[in-house]
């Protein structure tokens, strides 16, 4: 009985706090994405214009985002029946967008970031007990142009 109560409390905590955290995070991601519209991160291997380049350097950004208790429960239920794991999809999506934003913050006043790569890896605490977090690293070459 006590275990059942603890479980229910954890699920409720996960649901309310997790939903709140996700909503706030998505809100802040959207705002910052809007603010960084002027800095394109592209997958091309060459700069758009090879003249007027003052400087270039490697920039990177990373984020580790954890899943909440409620989402993990939903995911384990989905695992029984099969289907798309929406709860994990939004987790990875948030981590990727956050990593790209941090990379752009690292680039400062660059005019573009070329050849971007995004790498995802799962973080686990031990073999039996997984923490359920995902790490995303985004990196690329920031191009700085000469001021005319």
């Amino acid at each position: 009985m006590e275990q059942l109560i603890l479980f229910a409390v954890l699920v409720l905590l996960g649901y309310f706090f997790g939903r709140n955290a996700e909503r706030k995070h998505l809100q802040s991601i959207r705002e910052r994405e809007e603010a960084f519209r002027h800095l394109p991160a592209i997958m091309l291997k060459r700069p758009l214009d090879e003249h007027m380049i003052a400087e270039y350097r490697l920039v990177n950004g990373s984020a580790v985002i954890a899943i909440d208790y409620f989402k993990r429960l939903v995911a384990s239920l989905v695992n029984l029946f099969g289907g798309s794991m929406i709860s994990y999809e939004s987790l990875v999506d948030r981590a990727r967008r956050e990593a790209i934003l941090r990379m752009k913050e690292d680039a400062g006043d660059a005019s573009e970031i070329i050849n971007i790569r995004i790498e995802t890896s799962a973080i686990s605490k031990s073999a039996q007990q997984s923490v359920g977090a995902v790490e995303v690293l985004a990196y690329g070459t920031a191009i700085y142009r000469k001021q005319v």
Binding site: F17, G18, E22, V64, I65, A66, E98, V131, G132, A133
Partner: peptide, 20 residues
């Protein structure tokens, strides 16, 4: 701290720091 975060969700700042 990370396993607590696993209940509430959100960013694991300690791990982000560690990895960078």
């Amino acid at each position: 701290a990370a396993s607590f975060k696993n209940i509430f969700g959100g960013e694991l700042k300690g791990y982000t720091e560690l990895l960078s």
